[in-house]
């Protein structure tokens, strides 16, 4: 049961609290409340279904940011075995906002790389809230190249509020680091599968997000800017984040409709944090299915199909 309750989830939790209270009377006070409890349980289940199946885009953004949501390392431990983390960009340092290394999915060795957020203040400071610096992207690139060398597929997990907008990040070439990754990922000779598991904010997400397949978990978002920043730029105020989220059409379903992603992975009711094992099982199934289909392609076919896929993205008209 989640400890952090979002505003729109409150009716579910207050009803659930009522049921729990009744249950304690039922046991301690020799009162037979079982029919009433059954009735309320049915009601809370219906309420859950109706709330979670009618989420607004902003509510999805909130779920994508839920502090109890599984992060990259959680999925890695739930989905793979033998994870061997590899550190550093061999140049400047080791960015802890991006983690990666070889792991095994069944018998298949894969290179897995993802953004990593922290759970509390201390770990969030260490992970820089999942906002990478240039050395993070360069570490990722080093690992992609390593995977290519040993002919192992690449799997990336996207979950970032954005690349870090700091002074040192600029000095060390944040723009160049991301650009280089887009260029190199486009021509990697091994299958690349990218999965948005939380937040996909702009270039910071795309910096490890160019691949043969892009899949999104059900309650995630992916766009060119966060709803808050969009509100601040276009409305000149921070108060229009709900409208901005609607306007950006940034949910998994939106992106599937726009033809920009390949698949949505279903989450447990209420979000991945309600049952991380189940969420990881679904994600693993989706990734291994995609890997299976990509393995049929030769290296040349793989790269040319990838470039073709991105070349087709975009809509325009003529006067």
């Amino acid at each position: 049961m989640a400890k952090v309750v979002l505003d729109f989830e409150k009716p579910i939790y207050s009803l659930q609290a009522k049921i729990d209270e009744m249950r304690s009377y039922h046991i301690e006070g020799n009162l037979d409340l079982s029919t009433e409890i059954d009735r309320l349980e049915k009601k809370v289940n219906e309420l859950r279904k109706s709330i979670y199946s009618n989420l607004t885009r902003w509510q999805r953004v909130q779920l994508a940011r839920h502090p109890e949501r599984p992060y990259t390392l959680d999925y890695i431990y739930l989905m793979f075995s033998n994870f061997t983390e590899l550190h550093g960009d061999r140049n400047f340092g080791d960015d802890k906002a991006i983690v990666g290394g070889f792991a095994q999915m069944g018998k298949q060795t894969v290179m897995v790389v993802g953004h990593q957020k922290g759970r509390d203040t201390k770990s969030n400071l260490m992970r820089n809230f999942g906002m990478p610096n240039p050395e993070g992207y360069r570490k990722a690139l080093r690992l992609f190249k390593l995977a290519e060398k040993f002919n192992k597929p690449v799997i990336t997990f996207i979950d970032t509020p954005g690349a870090f907008p700091g002074l040192e990040a600029e000095e060390r070439g944040q723009g160049e680091a991301i650009a280089r990754n887009l260029f190199e990922m486009a021509k990697l000779k091994v299958p690349v599968i990218c999965a948005v598991i939380g937040e996909g904010a702009s270039g910071g997400a795309l910096g490890i997000g160019v691949g043969d397949r892009l899949i999104m978990m059900e309650n995630t978002w992916y766009s060119v800017i966060s709803p808050e920043s969009c509100s601040s730029i276009l409305w000149h105020s921070w108060d229009y984040k709900e409208q901005a989220a609607e306007a950006l059409k940034l949910s998994a379903q939106d992106l599937l409709d726009q033809g920009l992603i390949d698949k949505i992975v279903e989450e447990p009711l209420g979000g991945a944090h309600h049952d991380p094992e189940e969420a990881a099982k679904n994600l693993k199934k989706a990734i291994s299915d995609e890997l299976k289909s990509l393995k049929k392609l030769s290296q040349e076919e793989l790269v040319s199909a990838r470039i073709e896929k991105y070349s087709k993205m975009g809509v325009y008209d003529y006067l």
Binding site: A186, S202, G203, S223, V224, I225, I307, S311, M313, G314
Partner: peptide, 23 residues
């Protein structure tokens, strides 16, 4: 930078142009 009014489409232009540059 990217045009916000085309949301994820404009984000993907970054990948598209970089992919074309490999050619």
């Amino acid at each position: 930078g990217a045009r916000m009014m085309e949301a994820t489409f404009s984000l993907m232009q970054m990948a598209k142009t970089s992919a074309k540059l490999t050619q």
